[in-house]
Design a protein around this nucleic acid. Structure first.
Lengths: 223, 223
DNA sequence: CGGTCATATGACTGACCAGTCACATTGTAA
DNA sequence: TTACAATGTGACTGGTCAGTCATATGACCG
């Protein structure tokens, strides 16, 4: 965590440092980021950086923390669906929120995505965060089975893996497909919003149908 | 591509350099890899490195090329299924081969995986390779529709994205789940092989059911 | 005014790195 | 043996970097 000195900084200066740090990490990745370059861009002395942070890693984790907090706040702004409904209703709600957030904060989203896919402090860090995500999806599906929305014969490991793998890069995929002005994204009635919704529907339809209750479970005797 | 001098090297020396280069990139990533460290480990002079390669990027691309070639060779060792069958039969065949290869060459597989998920020469390089993969899955599904194995109402963009996202990290996921001795993997009747097959079945079942022909396409009117 | 504390500064150190190049060694053919 | 080409070598250059520290600035209080 940053030192008190950092939080005592005037709002605009602190924000400038955060913005430039996001730009630095998003451009060069965790390994490529440089304190020297950052302080030069921010117009502060090298020594000042060390008044604010222990090191680059400290700053990096703070940015991840910031992103997680902002995303959680966006999610809290709309009420979650009834937990008794299908897990895919919950997923749809989560994805609307997180995609909306990430698409309006693409640079920080990119850092967080990379953190979950290998760029980051250590392999263990990455593995830990991914495992947490997979565990969450697993629980969600287990609840879905209890409520009869998910096929009881489902391979939970396989299913949780599919969800993690698919939903994690989703925002990055959408960002790569829609090269557009950020203001388009704010308008909830824009054409891009509709395109995003359509793809999200197509995606969840595949997953929900693939994992949902099946009357006669398909006899799968390959191999 | 490496220079002729590299290919003129005695087999064992060349192999040693390749092995240590794989170790270097797998451990430190594209950005973190160091020529100085590599030549020290390999016991060759810095100058010699430049007799063999233009630079680290040259070596890196050569390793990716090598991995792709080896994987293709493994795939060629078993005949592909009838193209008129379901795309998922083709996928099953591909996955058996590539998972088998990657699980026995985990270090090089890790480099290739990272290359496709952000670590690498440039963002453009990554995007290009991912796009090629997605295009391949898209074509495969399109053929499946023609033969009646895939739902004609399927959102091809969404489906190809799901396949790319799921199948790309599959080997890495399996590798993380099975901490085992490499020799276990060679034995085609080992317990790990069965576990891999089971998860692969569970995975493809979800995807095939989600994308396959549906008699009455589910009415999906969320939103 | 003087004193004290928090903050800002940037020159400096030691480490690492990529890439070069003049020279050494080895292989090969005349 | 000599001559020549291919290959091997590692000290050296110029660059970037993280992290330090003595010093400077400014704010606040007595």
């Amino acid at each position: 965590m940053p030192k008190p000195t950092f939080f005592n900084l005037p709002e605009d200066k602190r924000q400038r440092i955060v913005d430039l740090a996001i730009e630095e990490f998003a451009t060069y990745g965790y390994r490529g980021a440089s304190i020297s370059r950052l302080v030069a861009a921010a117009g502060i002395a090298k020594g000042s950086f060390y008044q604010y942070f222990d090191d680059l890693d400290d700053l990096y984790r703070y940015l991840l923390h910031l992103g997680a907090e902002q995303k959680a706040q966006v999610l809290r702004s709309t009420p979650p669906p009834d937990p008794a409904l299908s897990p895919f209703d919950t997923l749809r709600w989560m994805l609307r929120g997180s995609v909306g957030y990430e698409v309006t904060n693409p640079r920080l989203a990119r850092i967080a995505y990379r953190a979950l896919t290998g760029d980051g402090p250590s392999e263990a860090f990455v593995a830990e965060m991914r495992a947490a995500l997979t565990g969450f999806y697993r629980d969600l599906l287990a609840k879905g089975i209890k409520h009869g929305h998910i096929d009881p014969g489902l391979d939970l490991d396989a299913a949780a893996f599919v969800l993690t793998s698919t939903l994690l890069p989703l925002s990055q995929y959408l960002l790569s497909r829609i090269d557009l002005e950020p203001e388009d994204l704010v308008r909830p009635d824009g054409p891009q919003t509709a395109a995003i919704e359509a793809l999200l529907d197509g995606l969840l339809d595949i997953l929900e149908y693939g994992m949902g209750s099946r009357s006669p479970r398909k006899d799968d005797s390959h191999g």
